[in-house]
């Protein structure tokens, strides 16, 4: 298996709060890595570290060594890193633009493209996100007219359009109903063929359904990381067992 991220001795602080403590792990190409844990366990901080979105917080301090394809992420130009490592947020955050422009936004910003090839990219991305059939006749309508689940798939399409290698999902289904959740999960499993996926989720069952491997975070520490079936059938750590069986969380 090919490593895409190599993380060694990662520590992150927000002001005086120690958010991540000595985390080391590898992330492999074309896998779905689920990250579970109670709230405030550092999952989202870890995820946002991968494309340096934590930089937006001036209080954030990071130590340790994080390599993306053999290169330290601090040395990669941040725009390029974020283009290659895309992100889908917890809430469906459509931009106040039309459906088409939402998907085309990133592509347009990254340089001039021909009108036709832009159309092709938008169509391809919407199809990959399982949204094309629902919106193909109203691409010029405001994205806010879509339902929550549709908006979340629109956000996935928008991320796909800039052709990332890794997609970070930050609790992508937390605001969605079960049917929309199923559709997003379905999309994720298919996306795995072409992308590496890191999924932060509060929903233990979701991790069990879609993850190849699962990592359990607690209070900023990485407690356990293993194949998903191992985590769920034979956890090595008592705390992991307690969390997935619902004793705390």
């Amino acid at each position: 298996m090919v490593k895409i991220f190599t993380i060694k001795d990662l520590n992150i602080w927000f002001g005086s709060a120690h958010a991540l403590k000595d985390v080391s792990m590898d992330i492999y190409v074309n896998e779905i890595l689920s990250i579970i844990g109670p709230s405030n366990s550092g999952k989202t901080t870890f995820l946002r570290m991968l494309n340096r979105l934590n930089d937006l917080n001036h209080n954030c301090k990071m130590e340790g060594n994080v390599k993306f394809e053999e290169e330290d992420i601090k040395n990669i130009e941040v725009e390029l890193l974020r283009k290659r490592v895309g992100m889908v947020f917890a809430l469906p955050l459509a931009l106040p633009l039309s459906i088409f422009d939402n998907v085309a936004y990133g592509v347009r910003m990254h340089g001039k493209v021909k009108k036709q090839s832009l159309k092709d990219i938008v169509e391809k991305s919407l199809q990959e996100a399982y949204l094309w059939d629902e919106v193909k006749d109203r691409l010029n309508e405001s994205a806010f007219k879509l339902s929550g689940g549709q908006q979340q798939r629109l956000c996935i399409a928008r991320t796909l359009a800039v052709e990332p290698e890794v997609i970070l999902f930050d609790e992508p289904c937390s605001g969605l109903d079960p049917i929309s959740t199923a559709k997003v999960e379905e999309a994720m499993v298919i996306l795995k063929q072409n992308y590496t996926i890191v999924l932060v989720t509060n929903n233990v069952k979701q991790a069990a359904r879609v993850g190849d491997r699962t990592a359990f975070f607690l209070n900023g520490e990485l407690i356990e990381l293993n194949k998903t079936e191992n985590i769920f059938t034979a956890p090595k750590d008592k705390r992991t067992d307690g969390y997935i069986s619902g004793k705390f969380g």
């Binding site: 494309n51 979105l53 937006l56 725009e79 390029l80 890193l81 974020r82 283009k83 290659r84 895309g86 992100m87 947020f89 809430l91 955050l93 931009l95 106040p96 936004y105 990133g106 910003m109 990254h110 956000c155 928008r158 991320t159 800039v162």
Partner: peptide, 11 residues
């Protein structure tokens, strides 16, 4: 959140 979305696309 608009800013975050845009930045997260590498813009």
């Amino acid at each position: 959140s608009f800013r975050e979305v845009s930045l997260s696309l590498g813009v």
